[in-house]
């Protein structure tokens, strides 16, 4: 049975409140994990573990947060920006994220802003409801 987006968001909100020590109202769909919610790298793993438990599914970190492996490939990054090839790779790996704004200036320092609460909700919606 399909699970509604509201239901997914509710559980994601609960996970983020617990993992990052936040108030519920701070966790909006638009909030970015690092910039707005103060997540650090180890928190991403904590979040992945908690999502797996909450939704009873496997969440490969590479699928949900694939930026690291893209950034580590020299073919994909040049002069602090993603190359066309890198951008294509990121698009392929992050179908759950709107990259149109980022694509205008694919500065690697801005890649963290792509990870918003909605990224997680979109990912889970695709994963759970196909």
């Amino acid at each position: 049975m399909a699970i509604s987006r509201e239901e997914i968001f509710g559980k994601v909100q609960e996970v983020l409140v617990d993992a990052l020590g936040l108030d519920e109202d701070e966790v909006t769909e638009e909030a970015t994990l690092m910039g707005d919610l103060g997540a650090e790298s180890i928190d991403f793993l904590d979040i992945v573990f908690r999502l797996e438990k909450a939704f009873d599914i496997k969440v490969p970190r590479e699928e949900l947060f694939p930026a690291e492996s893209v950034l580590n490939n020299p073919d994909y990054v040049s002069g602090g920006k993603l190359t066309d090839k890198g951008m294509a790779e990121l698009r392929a790996r992050m179908p759950h994220t709107d990259l149109s704004k980022f694509a205008q200036d694919p500065d690697v320092n801005k890649i963290a802003d792509l990870f918003a609460v909605s990224t997680i909700v979109n990912f889970l919606e695709m994963k759970l409801n196909g």
Binding site: I42, L45, D46, V48, F49, E52, K53, R61
Partner: peptide
């Protein structure tokens, strides 16, 4: 152990 992955454990 609650969870364990190649990168980390909880």
């Amino acid at each position: 152990i609650e969870s364990i992955a190649p990168e980390a454990a909880s």
